[in-house]
């Protein structure tokens, strides 16, 4: 077996291990779903019956996604520290491999979250016209960027004593560009203004994801191995 294929196999193994643990307890998934569902209901209950501009609708959507993501994205690393399995994982694979596995797992969680939230949001908020192609592109790239930026911060937070709100505090400055771009893109999807308005945001979202994942994979080494 050559070197690159072991690399991918090991990352896939880390990912499958996390997925299997998750399917046994369903802790992250349920927390994420319930958190998203609660905020969604509160928002639509209070302001959902129409009259909101596409920009406000887009902003509320990303606020729901952001805070839901903050509720459980640190989990992947916190769990390893809590159960004392981090050391074994260090023996098994090098830092970039562990990072890749955890990143994939976080992406999957966020992808499932957006699959749950998006249709419910559109139904509850009574949004009648949606440019689905733009919305799908913005959400997909937004999820990649969100996972790319928060996975490494999750690893930092897992090593700090107090965890509670630290992930949100540390993530917010880093995620602010992503939120601005995603809200811009989603506005274009909701007000049917077409690709010309959305394409800049979509390109920059892609660039953001690439920068975050590259920077993380370099810096993760220092966090993981000390």
């Amino acid at each position: 077996m050559n070197r690159s294929s072991t690399w991918i196999t090991k990352a896939a193994a880390v990912f499958t291990k996390d997925l299997r643990c998750e399917l046994r307890t369903r802790y992250s998934l349920t927390t994420l779903a319930m958190f998203a569902f609660t905020t969604l209901v509160v928002v639509s209950f209070s302001v959902g019956q129409g009259g909101l501009s596409p920009r406000v609708q887009a902003a509320l959507f990303w606020i729901i996604v952001f805070f839901s993501a903050m509720s459980s994205l640190a989990g992947a690393f916190v769990k390893e520290e809590d159960t004392g399995t981090a050391q074994t994982l260090r023996l098994y694979a090098s830092a970039p491999v562990v990072y890749a596995g955890k990143l994939l797992f976080n992406m999957l969680l966020l992808f499932l979250l957006s699959l749950l939230v998006t249709p419910l949001y559109i139904i509850f908020m009574n949004i009648t016209q949606v440019n689905w192609a733009i919305l799908a592109a913005v959400i997909a790239l937004g999820v990649v960027g969100l996972a790319g930026a928060t996975t490494i911060i999750g690893a930092i937070v897992a090593q700090a004593g107090v965890r509670g709100a630290l992930l949100a505090v540390l993530s917010f400055p880093v995620l602010l560009p992503l939120l601005v771009l995603a809200i811009n893109g989603t506005t274009a999807a909701f007000d049917m203004s077409g690709w010309t308005n959305a394409i800049d945001s979509i390109r920059l979202l892609a660039a953001y994801g690439v920068i975050m994942i590259t920077a993380s994979s370099v810096l993760f080494e220092f966090i993981w191995n000390g």
Binding site: I152, I153, I156, Q159, A160, G161, V162, L166, V169, L170, F172, P173, V174, L176, P177, I211, M212, A215, S216, L219, F222, I223, G226
Partner: peptide
């Protein structure tokens, strides 16, 4: 965020390391 991260960490070595990583990571924004 940088200063609150430092406040949250107890071990001086971890504190230096993790906050340095965070400062570098937050820079592109």
């Amino acid at each position: 965020a940088y200063l609150s991260l430092r406040a949250a960490l107890a071990n001086p070595e971890r504190k230096g390391l993790l906050s340095a990583v965070y400062a570098i990571f937050a820079f592109p924004a």
